[in-house]
Each structure stands twice: as C-alpha cells, then as structure tokens.
Computed example of a mutant assay.
Amino acid sequence: MSSSHPALDQLPIRRLTPEDVLACADLCEDRGWQREEHKWGLLLTAGTGYGIDDPSGKGLVTVCVVTSYGPGLAAIGMVLVSSRYARQGVGRRLMRHVIAEAGDTPLTLYATAFGQPLYEELGFADVGRAEMLNGHFTLTEPAPALPVRPATAEDLPAVLRLDNEIFGVDRTAMITRLPAFADQLRVAEQDGEITGFAALWPNMDTHVIGPLIARDAATAQALVASLAASSDRRLRTDVDTRHTALTTWLKANGLEQIAETTVMIRSLPDLPGDWRRRFAPLTVAAG
C-alpha cells in the first residue's frame, strides 16, 4: 500500500532532550492523552528519550522514553505514534531500535491492550497486571494508625537502601529527584526504622501517588492516607493487582478502576526485587 509520507523507514531516530517536552506533550494531545508536561520533564531528564521528527515539520512522528537502572533493568514508557503516521510501522521500528540499543539489559514496560500484541511480537512476556485507580479520596474506611511523617534530607540514605532492596535494582538517579519533583514525600517509621515511603506528585488536575513502597498493606494504607490528607485534587495510583487488600481499601475510599495495564518483561523470567512490598510504581512510564 502506498503512503503519502516519504521513506518512513529512512527517517533518522534521534535522542530527545528536555527541550523536546512541549513536542512530546503535543504528541500526547494528538493521541487523546493528557499533556503531562511535568512528568515529561522528569522522564527526559532522568531517562533517555528517542524520537523521529516529522519531515513536514509538524512535530514528532513517534517517541518513547527509556529509564535505565543499570545493567539489571531498564523501563520503557510513553510509546506514542502520531495519528498521521499510525499503523505504518514507525512505532515497531522505534521499539526495535530501543531494544537493540539496550543490548543485554532486560527491559520492562506497562502495556495497554492495544500495544500488547506488538510487545509480545518483540519478545516481551506478561508477568503481571496493574490497576489504574482514580478518584476523590474520602477516608470512609480509616487507615491503620501507624507513624508517617514528611521525609527529610537525612532520610535519603535509608530510603535509597530500602528502595534498592525492594525494587531490586539501583534507581538512585530517579529517587533522588523525588524531593524536587513531588509535592510531598513521606516515610513510615517504626522503632527508628523506615518501613516504607511514598511520593505525591502533580499531574495535570490530579495528584499521583507513586512510588509506593511499604513493609505491608497496613503501612501502604497509612502512607496513602497521610498523602491524601495534603491534597484536594483527585488521586491516581497504579497498584499491582496482587495487592487486593490495598485496592479494596482504596475503592472503599472513593477511588475507581479506570484502566488496567499488563506488566511485561523481556530477557528475564520476572521483575527483580520483592513485589510483596512494591505496591505502586513512580509512574508506569518508568517502573
């Protein structure tokens, strides 16, 4: 079938920079997504963006972002193709380029039902699911009365140690950006030991809770309740569907499932770390 777009397979793939935030946001808007400029700023600073420019000068043809956590894992997110170039193979071409660039590094991503067949074709396997929950938090069902407080600079080494243990790879470069990126960063503490942490960050007209790392469901609930009390916006979080105690509690407090994504991985049998204490990602775009 002929195309009005010249030589799509010859258009150069380039690295994106923080100066591409608005073009990436425009591409989101083109596909009916929210612009999410704040999140794009983080991803293009902490990660590596890849894109193809539209030869007609109308922004970007396709983009994605890879957030590297060293040789043990990298996360792919924000895979988008302009509506003008949909179903012409440019997204597949960009993904193949990213996979080649990653070499032996295992890759993970959160797939929509629309994208999952392509990722399966490219060697990704289904290892779990996440519920996207959104709504005004009511605290109809109280959280356990566990000590939660704002994080301080002195907490950072302990937070990084806990995150490394639970996430399974080192994401220092991302976690150290949380105090500036998030509106709130809080820790749960018991007997002088940090047992969990969570951030609340602005995304358009909502506040996103993530990452959510906690010793158990009760600690996760206490962190969520503390963060929610500081916000008058709708809340969103993406919870591993195996954490039924947390999702049931969130739904009892006004949040509803608005989508479900499939967690996928390539070159490993499963994600590293301890899923039992990993309740929600920072964002599905970065794991």
Score class of each variant (00 low, 15 high):
E37I: 10
L16Y: 13
H38S: 05
D240I: 01
D9P: 04
T283R: 02
C64N: 15
G59E: 09
G168D: 03
D170K: 06
A225C: 07
P6C: 15
A180P: 00
V239K: 03
V81T: 12
L43D: 09
L156K: 04
E36F: 13
E193K: 09
A218M: 10
S230N: 12
T62F: 07
G59S: 02
L11I: 15
Q190Y: 15
E29N: 11
Y50C: 06
L8G: 15
M132Q: 07
K251S: 06
T262Y: 00
E121H: 03
G77K: 00
T195L: 10
E121V: 08
L156T: 11
R276Q: 02
Q34S: 07
L139C: 11
Q116P: 01
V66M: 04
A113R: 12
A286W: 00
A102I: 06
L200H: 04
V21M: 12
I52H: 05
I13Q: 12
T237A: 10
V169F: 09
Q10F: 13
A143H: 10
T17V: 11
R35K: 09
L27F: 11
G41T: 03
L235R: 07
M174V: 14
I166E: 11
W201H: 12
L160Y: 00
E165I: 07
A225V: 06
D274H: 05
V79P: 05
Q88Y: 08
